[in-house]
Design a protein around this nucleic acid. Sequence first.
DNA 1: TCTCTTTTTAGACCGTATCTAAATTCATGA
DNA 2: TCATGAATTTAGATACGGTCTAAAAAGAGA
Lengths: 131, 131
Amino acid sequence: MTDPVAILLRCGVRPTSQRVAIADYILGARSHPSADEILAHVKKTCPAISRATVYNTLNLLVEKGLVTTQILREGTVVFDPIVDNHHHFIDEQSGRIYDIPWEALRVSGTADLKGFDVRRFQVVLRGRRRR
Amino acid sequence: MTDPVAILLRCGVRPTSQRVAIADYILGARSHPSADEILAHVKKTCPAISRATVYNTLNLLVEKGLVTTQILREGTVVFDPIVDNHHHFIDEQSGRIYDIPWEALRVSGTADLKGFDVRRFQVVLRGRRRR
DNA sequence: TCTCTTTTTAGACCGTATCTAAATTCATGA
DNA sequence: TCATGAATTTAGATACGGTCTAAAAAGAGA
Ligand SMILES: [Mn+2]
Ligand SMILES: [Mn+2]
Ligand SMILES: [Zn+2]
Ligand SMILES: [Zn+2]
């Protein structure tokens, strides 16, 4: 089920045209966009939309567990439709953020840290994307 | 050699009173402070110091390789006197950031990622600090 | 259709970070 | 010692991300 209207309804969120436009974009996005990037994109199909609605809706989608926020860029949060554990690679040249599947890396030792109750973790990698 | 004046001189940076106060604080800090937290602290001994000087000096220290910036908190960069590879644990309750030694964890698979030239990485862990 | 609730909106507001231009400090050498 | 110019500091302006407010608009239910 990938229809944004159905997804919103299933979460008990009224599928207004603004929310549908935002959900339609972010739920399929692979680019880890910021709120302002989402606003710019959604304005193409919904020109009167306001910044407040974009922030309100994104925060609502986070609350409903449909997207996550990630702290990977300086100065702004980015939104991620992948809610399950995964890692991130940041291209230092372009700033683009790529998803790395959870199974692609193995991390050991997190359970042995004395004094730290680790609930979740991710590896943040930086370098250069090879074409 | 842990004298901030000597450290600044060795890097070719004129050790003004403002810079010494900032370097003295951040080079020994274990708390991953933001620029404004550093400003607040340094104002105690250097009350006339300006925000611009704190930012200028911190950026200079980063340029000289004496401290690093880390993107771990929403809305602000934090500064870290540990310039070598290490990991970070974030207490979700308090927001405090703890250093995890590089040797405490083992990460495998980073060299096998097709299409990604990994130059460096760190594990970002979240959970609850056990006293 | 009427009414009440939910949603959207513009713009104010706040925090972080940078920039600008003037003032100050400092090194240097006459 | 003093004059000069370069480096540094400063207050305040500017820019941008994000939240809040209060009023307008839209929608659901009677
Ligand atoms: Mn803005
Ligand atoms: Mn900002
Ligand atoms: Zn992701
Ligand atoms: Zn650290």
